[in-house]
C-alpha cells in the first residue's frame, strides 16, 4: 500500500481525513472537522477524569467519523471484539490485504508517547498501514512521523477496560460517493453546529456552558493548590495535544475560511475572522490562568471568570451571525 503520513492537529479528524484521502476523496482536516459539526462545549461535573470534571470542546469520541461520513455519504465499517485474539487476527488479515485501518486505542499503553503525556485516555485514534518485523506500522496523526509499535503493546492499547473502553474497535472505509454536494453539506453541518452551541436544553452545553463554567470559577473554593489543579485542568482540556489550539476554535475558523472560499461567501469569511478572535481570547484565558497560578499566594478568580465570559461573548457573536446565515440560505 502506498501511504503518506500526514500530521494533523486532532487524532480523530486527522484519521478520517487520511482515510478519505486514501480512498480518493481528498479532504482537509479542518473540512472534515467542520463537516462533522464537531465543535462544542460541554461541562459535565458528574463525569470525573482524575478527580476533575469532564470539560469537552468537541463532540464525544467517534462522533466526528460518524458525522462526516454520514454527511458525505461515505460508508464506514466499524467492528468491535470481545476476544482480543480475534481482534488481532482481523486486523492482521485487513493489513495483509492492504487495507488502511483506523483503531481506537488508549494513550497510556502506547510506548511512543512522551512520558509526560501518557495519561489514561481510552479514545485515541490512529491508523495502521502495514506490519513489519518489529510490529505494526502506525500512522498516528498527531505525531510528525509514522512509528512502529510492537504487536503486544498495540493489542494492549486496543483492549483496555474502563471509561470509553475501545473493545478493539477498528474501522475502515467501504465506499465513497462519486460526487459531493459541498454547499449543501456545509450548510447542514454549520446549521447543526449552531444548534449545539446555542440551542442545547441544558445550561452546561454550548455558550451557556462556557458562562456556567465561568460562574463555577467565580465560586471556586478549596486551597490554592486545589484551585490551581482545577484551572490547570481546564487549560489542559483546551490546549494539550490534539486540540489544534484554543480548544479546536482555530481548526473551526480554518474550516469556515475554506467553506467561505468554496461557496464564495463573505459572511462565512467574516465568521472565520470572528472565530479566530474568539480563539485568540481562549488563548488569552489560558495565559491568564498560567499567570495567576504561578503567582502562588492567591488566585484572582473574578479576573479569570470574566476572561472566560469574554470568550463566551466573542463566540456568541460568531454563532449569531452563522445562525442568521443558515436562516437566510
Amino acid at each position: 500500500m502506498t501511504f503518506t503520513h500526514q500530521q494533523a492537529a486532532h487524532c480523530e479528524s486527522g484519521v478520517i481525513s487520511a482515510l478519505l484521502s486514501q480512498h480518493g476523496l481528498a479532504i482537509s482536516e479542518p473540512m472534515a472537522f467542520g463537516l462533522a459539526n464537531a465543535l462544542a462545549f460541554a461541562y459535565i461535573p458528574i463525569i470525573k477524569i482524575g478527580g476533575q470534571p469532564l470539560i469537552a470542546y468537541r463532540l464525544p469520541p467517534k462522533a466526528i467519523i460518524k458525522n462526516v461520513c454520514k454527511r458525505l455519504g461515505v460508508t464506514v465499517k466499524f467492528q468491535k471484539f470481545n476476544d482480543p485474539i480475534r481482534g488481532a487476527q482481523v486486523l492482521d488479515d485487513l493489513v495483509e490485504r492492504g487495507t488502511l485501518v483506523g483503531l481506537q486505542t488508549s494513550v497510556y499503553y502506547l510506548p511512543y508517547f512522551p512520558e509526560q503525556m501518557r495519561f489514561h485516555f481510552n479514545a485515541h485514534n490512529l491508523l495502521i498501514y502495514g506490519k513489519g518485523e518489529r510490529g505494526y506500522q502506525v500512522s498516528d496523526p498527531i505525531f510528525e512521523q509514522p512509528v512502529e509499535v510492537a504487536s503486544r503493546d498495540l493489542n494492549k492499547a486496543r483492549f483496555v477496560r474502563g471509561p470509553l473502553a475501545p473493545k478493539g474497535l477498528l474501522y475502515r472505509i467501504e465506499s465513497v460517493p462519486e460526487t459531493i454536494d459541498y454547499p449543501k453539506a456545509i450548510r447542514a453541518a454549520i446549521s447543526k453546529n449552531v444548534k449545539v452551541m446555542t440551542g442545547a436544553p441544558l445550561p452546561v452545553i454550548g455558550i451557556k456552558g462556557v458562562r456556567y463554567l465561568a460562574g463555577k470559577i467565580d465560586k471556586l473554593s478549596g486551597s490554592v493548590k486545589q484551585q490551581r489543579l482545577y484551572l490547570g485542568h481546564i487549560v489542559r482540556m483546551q490546549e494539550e495535544i490534539g486540540t489544534g489550539g484554543a480548544g479546536f476554535r482555530f481548526i473551526y475558523a480554518s474550516f469556515l475560511q475554506e467553506a467561505a472560499e468554496l461557496l464564495q461567501d463573505d459572511t462565512l469569511a467574516q465568521a472565520s475572522a470572528a472565530m479566530t478572535d474568539a480563539g485568540d481570547y481562549w488563548r488569552e484565558f489560558a495565559l491568564l490562568v498560567a499567570r495567576e497560578c504561578k503567582r502562588g499566594d492567591s488566585i484572582n478568580r473574578a479576573l479569570l471568570a470574566d476572561a472566560l465570559r469574554g470568550c463566551a461573548d466573542r463566540e456568541a457573536v460568531v454563532w449569531q451571525s452563522l445562525k442568521a446565515w443558515c436562516k437566510a440560505g
Binding site: 500530521q7 492537529a9 482536516e29 479542518p30 482524575g50 509526560q116 503525556m117 495519561f119 510528525e144 490551581r228 489543579l229 490547570g232 485542568h233 487549560v235 489542559r236 490546549e239 494539550e240 489550539g245 482555530f250 475558523a253 480554518s254 475560511q257 475554506e258 472565520s272 475572522a273 489560558a286 495565559l287 490562568v289 498560567a290 497560578c293 504561578k294
Partner: peptide
C-alpha cells in the same frame, strides 16, 4: 490571513498545566 497548518514546539501555559497534573 490564510489559515495554514504549522508546527509548534510547545507553549509555556500549556506545559505548566501538564506538569502540574
Amino acid at each position: 490571513g490564510h489559515y495554514t497548518p504549522i508546527q509548534s514546539s510547545g507553549w509555556e501555559p500549556e506545559a505548566c498545566a501538564t506538569q502540574d497534573a
